[in-house]
Write a protein that binds this DNA or RNA. Structure first.
Lengths: 274, 274
DNA sequence: CTTCATATTATCAAAATCCGGAATGAAAAT
DNA sequence: ATTTTCATTCCGGATTTTGATAATATGAAG
């Protein structure tokens, strides 16, 4: 029946206890049935004693509990409450998401929201156009900075020192024929991006995929995130992407003001823990 | 070592990295606003460099992300995804699902269980009683708050400020002819819902679909979820829906006590009784 | 009731990680 | 311009982690 568990979890040998521990929780939390120590060990490709130690500690902490009678573990009440809390306090996420939905409805294409995280561009949110085509870079994934519209936009607005540092972390890999790998050329483009107020990705990361991004500014006017629209070139040639930019700017403005509102409201309803 | 006086110190000096790491996630996950490194350090009474190390690793792992611009951290996409998995599988495979099944058997209609998430109503579980009709909102989908019975029920029991905020996120779109889009009218209905203890949806979201919902309360009496029954009007006119309400209340009560039992178990040591 | 196969828990010394005070750097706040 | 606060890096010593191996428990089959 329900035993999908395609949860391919490549736990590198280079991961810390905390990472392994979370991997175990993810594994148990998404399996939908009780998992035993050795099952987890197989799924995550970890030595049995290691899994045992982790599972035992999670049991002590009330995060996993042993299903009555069975040897398998399921998420415990504390983990359940944690999950509930994470959800119910996700209001900020909600406002952003609603705006992206409207943007997707207006453009008919996929809308994206990204920030810099871990030296790469993090897709913090996305709304798929109902079109069943296109590449599927899911929310939470990271892509390079130097060859994506949002990445270039955010780089362009970093202090020069920081921008250089971020670029030095990457190897400026040429993903496609149009990927820019020359620092001088990139630096020129950053200047242009700052001037024109938007940035484009002409299949620089994924062949056949076009992307256009605009900046999102915080209360002080600092660029801190980006909104973008992406689509296959066959459907959205560059000229059409540019036509979407006014809409993108509107959405970015809406997000910024939604934040300002949050800011003003900050302070009241903290959530009590259970 | 240092004076072992602090009673409110939730993190013992004798806890492992994993425990500290989870404590940080719990802290950020339940605060409802971005927390900075030093705030977390104060809240958990941990040294700043230690918190920094943990937070930084969580950032690298995509579990926490820095709220755009600010220094504060909020749950990242991966953590949301994890929370969704834990919550849904716990609900669907636990005792709560069986309660919904009994409810469906008793009413002969589709039973639903939902919570607020990200400014919308999240269908956490559902049991179909008979032939699906027309559009079908699957488990895990999100629907608007202002025009669904569960959404209105949960809104009615939010603190006024939060309710206003949640409503401001949506554009109160009129999905059907009976959708209420006037804030004053809605506010009146919320008062009525609190008084009568149930809420109704007279085809306000989907034409031809009737719905009735009651609240689920946690151990403290706070409304945290909703249970509803839904059906085509042709089969379940409003008068019939209202007749189902005693059954709904029973089911809600059962779910609440199942929930409370979990809580009680959490309080004891990690080992489940045999 | 025994036997056997499998799963779980204990052990331990080497190796890797973690720790947190102190110092430094960056950025708001005044 | 300055002060204050917060974030980040350093680093050697202490603690924890690690996982092969072994002992034990479990439960199925004979």
């Amino acid at each position: 029946m329900t035993a999908p568990l395609n949860l391919s979890n490549p736990i590198g040998d280079r991961s810390s206890v905390s990472q392994k521990t979370f991997a175990v929780m993810e594994c148990v939390g998404s399996s939908g049935r009780p998992l035993t120590t050795s099952e987890i060990a197989v799924l995550l490709d970890m030595p049995t004693p290691t899994v045992h130690r982790i599972v035992h500690q999670l049991d002590m902490d009330g995060l996993l509990v042993q299903e009555a009678g069975s040897r398998g573990y399921v998420p415990g009440p504390r983990l359940f409450n944690f999950a509930l809390n994470v959800f119910q306090t996700a209001v900020r996420h909600g406002s952003k998401h609603a705006i992206l939905e409207r943007l997707s409805a207006a453009t008919g294409e996929t809308s994206n929201f990204g920030i810099i995280s871990g030296g790469a561009l993090l897709y913090a949110d996305r709304v798929e156009a109902s079109w069943p085509f296109g590449l599927r870079y899911e929310v939470g994934s990271r892509v390079p900075l130097h060859c994506t519209s949002m990445g270039k936009m955010l780089l362009a607005h970093q202090p020069k020192r920081r921008r250089e540092h971020l670029l030095s972390l990457s190897d400026l890999h040429a993903y496609t024929a149009t990927t820019m790998t020359d620092l001088t050329v990139l630096e020129e483009q950053f200047a242009q991006i700052r001037t024109q107020g938007y940035s484009l990705d002409n299949q620089e990361f994924l062949a056949g995929v076009i992307c256009a991004a605009v900046p999102v500014r915080d209360a002080r006017g600092k660029v801190c995130a980006a909104v973008a629209v992406s689509a296959p070139q066959a459907r959205m040639p560059m000229s059409l992407a540019i036509q979407h930019i006014p809409r993108l700017l509107e959405a970015a403005e809406e997000i910024a003001s939604a934040w300002a509102m949050d800011e003003a409201e900050a302070g009241e309803d903290g959530h009590a823990r259970i």
